[in-house]
């Protein structure tokens, strides 16, 4: 594995990590699986791509996030006010988003952005400068994504210590108690869904600008990747503090990307088989710490 490939893995891993932090809010903090993700990732990607065509990449990121939040609010309202089960509410929004994403891209299933401005394009002059066997452009792209991820980690950590953040966490922990504290749990859930999908969309927006390419299938399987990232992170590191939970989600996403890339590197592998190989590797990486513990316990008994 070359240094260039490692940089690419970490870059993509950071995009997925930002998305995984969003998924962490619904999946872990609130304790509900929100399947809007596959749709809202593409929503962010589509918004970002179309604004890059007009050379407005930063506006694309911001609007991508806002649209993602709106998608989350729709799922939240379907779930809380219309009493639709969370899983179904997410699927419904995701299904609707498939069409909406086509509206945003003016019916184009894919867009290439190699000629257009992205938030990373100001670095393109540095492509020729060598850096650790790769080039400075890749390194600085990685740094920008890392800084964005760190800012989000700090903001999330802060937010979940404020009163409203506490109320959202408690809603996932003991809804009845939040109600008894005179807080509307429905509103808390809607806010959580909005934040979650805003981050997922941001992940998608960044991913498009990183790849300089948009495809309407980018969102497929993102829920699996996000949950895998969270679980891999939790399996490898024990979570204690709040900020740590987000850090390990990002690290988990990067590790996932490495696993995926390793699967790609297997000789003569058919692209069709990659999905099942990654699935098996994820299962192994999640189960290994548990198996290791069991083996350790077993050997102690023998002694």
């Amino acid at each position: 594995m070359s240094v260039g490939l490692i940089f690419t893995c970490i870059q993509i891993g950071l995009c997925f990590g930002i998305m995984a932090m969003g998924i962490h809010i619904s999946f872990r903090t609130l304790g509900v699986p929100d399947l809007t993700i596959d749709g809202s990732f593409t929503l962010g990607a589509a918004t970002s791509a179309i604004f890059c065509l007009y050379n407005l990449p930063i506006l694309g990121l911001i609007l991508g996030m806002i649209f993602g939040a709106l998608a989350g609010i729709v799922t939240g309202i379907l779930h809380t006010k219309l009493k639709i089960q969370a899983v179904l509410a997410g699927i419904l929004t995701m299904t609707g988003l498939y069409s909406i994403n086509f509206w945003i891209t003016k019916r184009r299933p894919s867009i290439t952005l190699y000629q257009n401005k992205t938030i990373f394009s100001f670095l393109s002059n540095l492509k020729k400068v060598d850096f650790l066997g790769s080039n400075l452009k890749e390194a600085l792209t990685l740094l920008i994504l890392l800084i964005i991820a760190i800012i989000i980690i700090i903001l999330l950590d802060r937010f979940f210590r404020t009163n409203i953040g506490l109320a959202i966490r408690a809603t996932g922990d003991n809804e009845e108690m939040v109600n008894a504290s005179s807080i509307n749990t429905d509103s808390m859930k809607i806010i959580a869904f909005a934040m979650s999908n805003a981050l997922v969309s941001l992940g998608g927006s960044l991913y498009v600008q990183l790849q300089s390419n948009y495809d309407n299938s980018y969102g497929n399987g993102m829920m699996v990747i996000g949950v895998a990232a969270i679980i891999i992170g939790e399996a490898l590191f024990r979570k204690r503090k709040l900020a740590k939970a987000y850090i390990i989600s990002v690290v988990g996403a990067i590790i996932y990307e490495f696993i995926f890339m390793l699967a790609l590197l297997i000789d003569n592998v058919n692209p069709i088989d990659i999905k099942i190989i990654t699935a098996i590797i994820i299962v192994l990486s999640v189960c290994l710490p548990m198996l290791y513990k069991k083996i350790k316990k077993g050997s102690k008994k023998d002694a």
């Binding site: 210590r161 009163n163 506490l166 922990d173 003991n174 504290s181 807080i183």
Partner: peptide
């Protein structure tokens, strides 16, 4: 029923003392 188990004592108290009139973004 009355407390959120995975949150600390102070965080539980912060929620109850806020009771509907809290500064949304203030540190509980």
């Amino acid at each position: 029923r009355g407390t959120a188990p995975n949150m600390s004592i102070e965080e539980n108290l912060a929620l109850s003392s806020a009771k509907g009139k809290f500064g949304v973004f203030s540190n509980g």
